[in-house]
C-alpha cells in the first residue's frame, strides 16, 4: 500500500532533480541538455549560466562519456544526474568505461602552438565554465561531477 510521508521543509532542501539514463548516442545530448537547462531556468539561474556555462559544460561531459568513456559503443549507456539547487548545480555524468585521468588530459588549448588544434578544448571548457570538476569511481564505470554556484 502506498503511504504518504511528509518531510519537514528546509530552505536548503529546495532542489530539482533530473535523473535519466540514455543510450550511448550523441543525438540525445541536446534533449538532455534542454531538460537540465529548463530546471535551471525555473530555479532562476542567470542568463550567462543558462546560455553558456550549463549547456556547453554538460554537452562536453556527455560527449566525453559517450565517445571516450563508452568508446562510442551503442550497447552502452550514460547516466545523467542533475541536482539543481537554489545555491548550486551539481551535474553528474556516468559512463560504463574505465574513465580517464582528468589531470593527465590537462593541455592548454589557448597557447599559440595549441590554438590551431581541432581537439583538446572539451575538458578545458568544463573547467572554465564550472566551479569544480572531479572524477569519481563508480561501481560500473566512472562519473564526472561538475559543480556550479548560482550567480
Amino acid at each position: 500500500m502506498p503511504r504518504t510521508e511528509r518531510h519537514g521543509s528546509s530552505p536548503d532542501g529546495r532542489v530539482r532533480v533530473v535523473d535519466v539514463e540514455i543510450p550511448n548516442d550523441v543525438r540525445y545530448i541536446e534533449k538532455v541538455v534542454e531538460l537540465v537547462r529548463r530546471e535551471c531556468q525555473v530555479m532562476a539561474y542567470g542568463h550567462r549560466q543558462l546560455m553558456l556555462n550549463v549547456p556547453v559544460a554538460l554537452t562536453e561531459a556527455l560527449s566525453n562519456a559517450i565517445l571516450r568513456g563508452n568508446g562510442d559503443d551503442p550497447a552502452k549507456h550514460v547516466h545523467v544526474h542533475a541536482e539543481v539547487g537554489a545555491e548550486r548545480l551539481v551535474l553528474e555524468v556516468g559512463d560504463e568505461g574505465t574513465g580517464f585521468d582528468l589531470d593527465a588530459s590537462l593541455i592548454d588549448p589557448t597557447t599559440p602552438e595549441n590554438l590551431g588544434r581541432e581537439d583538446g578544448r572539451g575538458l578545458f571548457l568544463m573547467r572554465k565554465l564550472m566551479d569544480r570538476v572531479e572524477r569519481l569511481e563508480a561501481a560500473h564505470g566512472s562519473v564526472v561531477r561538475m559543480t556550479l554556484h548560482r550567480e
Binding site: P2, R3, T4, E5, R6, H7, G8, S9, G13, R14, V15, R16, V17
Partner: peptide, 11 residues
Amino acid sequence: AARVVPAESVG
C-alpha cells in the same frame, strides 16, 4: 511491495 515518499517539492 511498493512505496512512494513524496518530497516537499512535487516530483
